[in-house]
Design a protein around this nucleic acid. Sequence first.
DNA 1: AAAGTAACCTGCCCGC
DNA 2: TGCGGGCAGGTTACTT
Length: 281
Amino acid sequence: MPELPEVETVKRGLEKEIINKKIAKIQVNLPSLIKKPPIDKLMTRLKNNMIISIKRRGKYIIIIFDTMDYLVVHLGMSGRLLFQPKTLPHSKISNTIEKHNHILFFFEDGSKIIYNDVRKFGKMWLLKRDEKLTRIESLGFEPLEPCFTVSEFYRILQESKVNIKSFLMNQKNIAGIGNIYANEILFHAGVNPLRKANSLRKDEVKRIYLQTKNILLKAISSGGTTMIDESYLDLSGNRGEYGKEIMVYGKKTGICPICGQPLEVIRIENRSTFLCSKCQK
DNA sequence: AAAGTAACCTGCCCGC
DNA sequence: TGCGGGCAGGTTACTT
Protein backbone atom coordinates (compact mmCIF):
# COMPACT_ATOMS: atom_id res chain seq x y z
CA MET A 1 0.00 0.00 0.00
CA PRO A 2 2.01 2.79 1.34
CA GLU A 3 4.69 4.52 -0.64
CA LEU A 4 6.85 7.45 0.40
CA PRO A 5 4.05 10.06 0.63
CA GLU A 6 1.79 7.81 2.68
CA VAL A 7 4.62 6.75 4.99
CA GLU A 8 5.70 10.38 5.38
CA THR A 9 2.12 11.32 6.30
CA VAL A 10 2.01 8.61 8.97
CA LYS A 11 5.42 9.74 10.23
CA ARG A 12 4.18 13.32 10.64
CA GLY A 13 1.10 12.04 12.43
CA LEU A 14 3.29 10.11 14.86
CA GLU A 15 5.40 13.21 15.50
CA LYS A 16 2.25 15.07 16.41
CA GLU A 17 0.76 12.40 18.63
CA ILE A 18 3.36 10.28 20.41
CA ILE A 19 6.53 12.30 20.98
CA ASN A 20 7.42 12.31 24.70
CA LYS A 21 4.94 9.56 25.47
CA LYS A 22 6.01 6.62 27.57
CA ILE A 23 5.05 3.03 26.75
CA ALA A 24 3.16 1.43 29.62
CA LYS A 25 2.27 -1.88 28.02
CA ILE A 26 2.51 -3.76 24.73
CA GLN A 27 0.09 -6.37 23.45
CA VAL A 28 1.33 -8.66 20.68
CA ASN A 29 -1.36 -10.68 18.92
CA LEU A 30 0.78 -11.70 15.95
CA PRO A 31 4.34 -12.42 17.08
CA SER A 32 5.54 -13.43 13.60
CA LEU A 33 5.33 -9.79 12.57
CA ILE A 34 8.26 -8.95 14.83
CA LYS A 35 11.49 -10.06 13.18
CA LYS A 36 13.83 -9.03 15.96
CA PRO A 37 14.31 -9.57 18.89
CA PRO A 38 12.23 -12.45 20.37
CA ILE A 39 8.90 -11.19 21.72
CA ASP A 40 9.71 -11.42 25.42
CA LYS A 41 12.90 -9.43 24.91
CA LEU A 42 11.03 -6.81 22.88
CA MET A 43 8.42 -6.42 25.61
CA THR A 44 10.91 -5.89 28.39
CA ARG A 45 13.10 -3.62 26.32
CA LEU A 46 10.23 -1.38 25.24
CA LYS A 47 8.42 -1.08 28.53
CA ASN A 48 8.76 2.38 30.11
CA ASN A 49 10.59 3.68 27.06
CA MET A 50 9.81 7.19 26.00
CA ILE A 51 9.57 8.15 22.32
CA ILE A 52 11.88 11.01 21.53
CA SER A 53 11.76 11.25 17.73
CA ILE A 54 10.38 9.76 14.53
CA LYS A 55 12.20 9.41 11.22
CA ARG A 56 11.46 7.98 7.80
CA ARG A 57 13.77 6.27 5.32
CA GLY A 58 12.13 5.21 2.07
CA LYS A 59 9.02 3.32 3.09
CA TYR A 60 10.34 2.59 6.58
CA ILE A 61 9.23 4.39 9.74
CA ILE A 62 11.82 4.67 12.49
CA ILE A 63 10.73 5.33 16.06
CA ILE A 64 13.54 6.40 18.38
CA PHE A 65 13.37 5.93 22.15
CA ASP A 66 15.10 7.64 25.06
CA THR A 67 17.22 4.50 25.52
CA MET A 68 18.43 5.11 21.93
CA ASP A 69 16.91 1.80 20.93
CA TYR A 70 14.88 2.24 17.77
CA LEU A 71 11.91 0.48 16.27
CA VAL A 72 11.80 0.05 12.49
CA VAL A 73 8.36 -0.45 10.96
CA HIS A 74 7.51 -1.43 7.39
CA LEU A 75 3.81 -1.39 6.55
CA GLY A 76 3.98 -3.87 3.69
CA MET A 77 0.94 -3.74 1.43
CA SER A 78 -1.87 -3.24 3.91
CA GLY A 79 -0.27 -2.23 7.21
CA ARG A 80 -1.67 0.73 9.14
CA LEU A 81 -0.68 2.56 12.26
CA LEU A 82 -3.71 3.98 14.01
CA PHE A 83 -3.69 6.40 16.92
CA GLN A 84 -6.40 6.25 19.53
CA PRO A 85 -6.62 9.07 22.03
CA LYS A 86 -7.51 8.30 25.63
CA THR A 87 -11.22 8.69 25.15
CA LEU A 88 -11.85 7.24 21.73
CA PRO A 89 -14.79 8.53 19.73
CA HIS A 90 -15.86 4.90 19.30
CA SER A 91 -17.31 5.39 15.82
CA LYS A 92 -14.14 5.08 13.75
CA ILE A 93 -13.17 1.58 14.79
CA SER A 94 -15.10 -1.12 12.98
CA ASN A 95 -15.06 -4.85 13.64
CA THR A 96 -13.18 -5.63 10.46
CA ILE A 97 -10.35 -3.42 11.66
CA GLU A 98 -10.25 -4.96 15.13
CA LYS A 99 -9.91 -8.39 13.59
CA HIS A 100 -6.52 -7.42 12.15
CA ASN A 101 -5.12 -5.48 15.09
CA HIS A 102 -1.82 -7.26 15.55
CA ILE A 103 0.21 -5.09 17.90
CA LEU A 104 -0.97 -2.50 20.42
CA PHE A 105 1.27 0.03 22.14
CA PHE A 106 -0.39 1.46 25.25
CA PHE A 107 0.97 4.76 26.54
CA GLU A 108 1.02 5.99 30.11
CA ASP A 109 -1.52 8.70 29.35
CA GLY A 110 -4.14 6.20 28.21
CA SER A 111 -3.69 6.74 24.46
CA LYS A 112 -2.48 3.97 22.17
CA ILE A 113 -1.05 3.10 18.77
CA ILE A 114 -2.46 0.07 16.97
CA TYR A 115 -0.63 -1.77 14.22
CA ASN A 116 -3.30 -3.20 11.91
CA ASP A 117 -2.53 -5.28 8.83
CA VAL A 118 -4.98 -7.38 6.81
CA ARG A 119 -2.39 -9.11 4.64
CA LYS A 120 0.36 -9.42 7.26
CA PHE A 121 3.17 -8.38 4.94
CA GLY A 122 4.37 -5.72 7.36
CA LYS A 123 7.39 -6.20 9.61
CA MET A 124 9.01 -4.69 12.70
CA TRP A 125 12.49 -4.75 14.19
CA LEU A 126 13.67 -3.36 17.52
CA LEU A 127 17.34 -2.46 17.29
CA LYS A 128 19.95 -1.22 19.72
CA ARG A 129 21.58 2.13 19.20
CA ASP A 130 24.57 0.82 17.29
CA GLU A 131 22.77 -1.98 15.53
CA LYS A 132 22.19 -1.69 11.80
CA LEU A 133 19.51 -3.18 9.58
CA THR A 134 20.84 -4.33 6.21
CA ARG A 135 17.54 -3.53 4.53
CA ILE A 136 17.87 0.11 5.55
CA GLU A 137 21.59 0.36 4.88
CA SER A 138 21.14 -0.83 1.31
CA LEU A 139 18.46 1.70 0.39
CA GLY A 140 19.25 4.11 -2.41
CA PHE A 141 18.75 7.87 -2.66
CA GLU A 142 16.17 9.58 -0.55
CA PRO A 143 14.45 11.31 -3.47
CA LEU A 144 13.50 14.53 -1.67
CA GLU A 145 16.91 15.08 -0.11
CA PRO A 146 19.32 17.57 -1.72
CA CYS A 147 21.93 14.85 -2.31
CA PHE A 148 19.62 13.36 -4.92
CA THR A 149 20.70 15.56 -7.80
CA VAL A 150 19.95 15.26 -11.49
CA SER A 151 23.59 14.44 -12.25
CA GLU A 152 23.66 11.68 -9.64
CA PHE A 153 20.41 10.35 -11.08
CA TYR A 154 21.87 10.37 -14.59
CA ARG A 155 24.99 8.63 -13.35
CA ILE A 156 23.17 5.70 -11.73
CA LEU A 157 20.85 5.35 -14.72
CA GLN A 158 23.88 4.90 -16.98
CA GLU A 159 24.92 1.86 -14.96
CA SER A 160 21.67 -0.01 -15.51
CA LYS A 161 19.94 -1.71 -18.40
CA VAL A 162 16.64 -2.40 -16.66
CA ASN A 163 13.46 -0.74 -17.79
CA ILE A 164 12.95 2.65 -16.17
CA LYS A 165 9.85 1.63 -14.25
CA SER A 166 11.63 -1.25 -12.53
CA PHE A 167 14.55 1.07 -11.91
CA LEU A 168 12.38 3.64 -10.15
CA MET A 169 10.70 0.95 -8.05
CA ASN A 170 13.96 -0.69 -7.01
CA GLN A 171 14.54 0.59 -3.48
CA LYS A 172 18.30 0.21 -3.89
CA ASN A 173 18.25 2.96 -6.52
CA ILE A 174 15.74 5.39 -5.05
CA ALA A 175 13.88 4.71 -1.82
CA GLY A 176 10.14 5.15 -1.49
CA ILE A 177 8.68 4.90 -4.98
CA GLY A 178 6.10 2.14 -5.50
CA ASN A 179 3.65 1.24 -8.20
CA ILE A 180 1.32 4.24 -8.02
CA TYR A 181 4.01 6.90 -8.11
CA ALA A 182 6.21 5.10 -10.65
CA ASN A 183 3.25 5.11 -13.05
CA GLU A 184 2.42 8.73 -12.36
CA ILE A 185 6.01 9.99 -12.60
CA LEU A 186 6.57 8.36 -15.98
CA PHE A 187 3.28 9.62 -17.34
CA HIS A 188 4.04 13.20 -16.30
CA ALA A 189 7.56 12.88 -17.68
CA GLY A 190 6.26 11.50 -20.98
CA VAL A 191 8.57 8.48 -20.84
CA ASN A 192 7.53 4.93 -21.70
CA PRO A 193 8.01 2.64 -18.67
CA LEU A 194 9.73 0.00 -20.81
CA ARG A 195 12.60 2.27 -21.87
CA LYS A 196 15.97 1.01 -20.72
CA ALA A 197 17.52 3.12 -17.95
CA ASN A 198 20.77 3.72 -19.84
CA SER A 199 18.98 4.65 -23.05
CA LEU A 200 17.40 7.80 -21.67
CA ARG A 201 18.49 11.16 -23.06
CA LYS A 202 19.49 13.93 -20.68
CA ASP A 203 16.27 15.85 -21.27
CA GLU A 204 14.22 12.76 -20.47
CA VAL A 205 16.24 12.10 -17.33
CA LYS A 206 15.70 15.70 -16.28
CA ARG A 207 11.94 15.37 -16.74
CA ILE A 208 11.75 12.15 -14.72
CA TYR A 209 13.90 13.73 -12.03
CA LEU A 210 11.77 16.87 -11.74
CA GLN A 211 8.50 14.93 -11.81
CA THR A 212 9.76 12.57 -9.10
CA LYS A 213 10.36 15.46 -6.70
CA ASN A 214 7.28 17.32 -7.82
CA ILE A 215 4.80 14.45 -7.56
CA LEU A 216 6.13 13.12 -4.26
CA LEU A 217 5.97 16.61 -2.75
CA LYS A 218 2.45 17.23 -4.01
CA ALA A 219 1.31 13.83 -2.78
CA ILE A 220 2.75 14.55 0.67
CA SER A 221 0.90 17.89 0.71
CA SER A 222 -2.30 15.98 -0.05
CA GLY A 223 -1.65 13.45 2.71
CA GLY A 224 -0.91 10.62 0.27
CA THR A 225 -3.18 8.57 -1.96
CA THR A 226 -6.24 6.67 -0.78
CA MET A 227 -7.88 4.60 -3.52
CA ILE A 228 -11.55 3.60 -3.36
CA ASP A 229 -10.80 0.48 -1.31
CA GLU A 230 -9.33 2.68 1.47
CA SER A 231 -6.47 0.31 2.06
CA TYR A 232 -4.45 3.36 3.03
CA LEU A 233 -5.60 5.59 5.87
CA ASP A 234 -3.47 7.85 8.02
CA LEU A 235 -2.85 7.68 11.76
CA SER A 236 -6.24 9.22 12.54
CA GLY A 237 -8.11 7.11 9.99
CA ASN A 238 -8.30 9.92 7.42
CA ARG A 239 -7.99 9.49 3.68
CA GLY A 240 -5.19 10.95 1.58
CA GLU A 241 -6.43 13.26 -1.16
CA TYR A 242 -3.80 12.79 -3.86
CA GLY A 243 -6.13 10.24 -5.48
CA LYS A 244 -7.89 13.18 -7.11
CA GLU A 245 -4.69 14.07 -8.96
CA ILE A 246 -3.95 10.56 -10.24
CA MET A 247 -3.64 10.59 -14.04
CA VAL A 248 -3.15 6.94 -15.02
CA TYR A 249 -2.69 4.53 -12.11
CA GLY A 250 -5.59 2.11 -11.78
CA LYS A 251 -7.46 3.51 -14.79
CA LYS A 252 -8.03 0.25 -16.63
CA THR A 253 -10.60 1.76 -18.99
CA GLY A 254 -9.38 5.33 -18.82
CA ILE A 255 -8.37 7.75 -21.53
CA CYS A 256 -5.21 9.82 -21.63
CA PRO A 257 -5.88 13.22 -20.04
CA ILE A 258 -3.54 14.80 -22.61
CA CYS A 259 -4.47 13.25 -25.97
CA GLY A 260 -7.69 11.37 -25.27
CA GLN A 261 -6.40 8.04 -26.56
CA PRO A 262 -7.37 4.97 -24.47
CA LEU A 263 -4.77 4.13 -21.81
CA GLU A 264 -2.92 0.84 -22.01
CA VAL A 265 -2.31 -1.63 -19.22
CA ILE A 266 0.78 -3.84 -19.41
CA ARG A 267 2.56 -5.98 -16.81
CA ILE A 268 6.08 -5.15 -15.68
CA GLU A 269 7.53 -7.41 -12.98
CA ASN A 270 4.01 -8.72 -12.60
CA ARG A 271 2.69 -5.31 -11.57
CA SER A 272 0.01 -3.45 -13.50
CA THR A 273 1.52 -0.61 -15.46
CA PHE A 274 -0.67 2.11 -16.94
CA LEU A 275 0.45 4.33 -19.77
CA CYS A 276 -0.43 6.32 -22.85
CA SER A 277 1.73 4.93 -25.64
CA LYS A 278 1.19 8.07 -27.69
CA CYS A 279 2.34 10.52 -25.01
CA GLN A 280 5.00 8.31 -23.42
CA LYS A 281 7.83 7.61 -25.85
C1' DA B 1 22.79 -8.62 -15.39
C1' DA B 2 18.02 -8.79 -16.57
C1' DA B 3 13.58 -10.71 -16.43
C1' DG B 4 10.26 -13.89 -14.89
C1' DT B 5 7.96 -16.58 -11.21
C1' DA B 6 6.63 -17.85 -6.73
C1' DA B 7 6.15 -17.01 -2.01
C1' DC B 8 4.34 -14.59 1.98
C1' DC B 9 -1.46 -13.27 3.33
C1' DT B 10 -6.57 -11.77 3.21
C1' DG B 11 -10.37 -9.79 0.83
C1' DC B 12 -12.87 -8.35 -3.00
C1' DC B 13 -14.61 -8.53 -7.67
C1' DC B 14 -15.81 -10.85 -11.86
C1' DG B 15 -17.35 -14.48 -14.75
C1' DC B 16 -19.37 -18.89 -15.17
C1' DT C 1 -25.95 -18.36 -4.67
C1' DG C 2 -21.43 -20.23 -4.89
C1' DC C 3 -16.93 -21.35 -6.44
C1' DG C 4 -12.56 -20.39 -8.71
C1' DG C 5 -9.35 -17.23 -10.70
C1' DG C 6 -7.22 -12.93 -10.75
C1' DC C 7 -5.92 -8.94 -8.63
C1' DA C 8 -4.27 -5.48 -4.79
C1' DG C 9 0.09 1.11 -2.72
C1' DG C 10 5.68 -4.60 -1.12
C1' DT C 11 9.83 -7.35 -0.78
C1' DT C 12 12.68 -11.38 -1.13
C1' DA C 13 14.37 -15.61 -3.11
C1' DC C 14 15.09 -18.45 -6.67
C1' DT C 15 15.23 -19.72 -11.67
C1' DT C 16 16.10 -19.08 -16.52
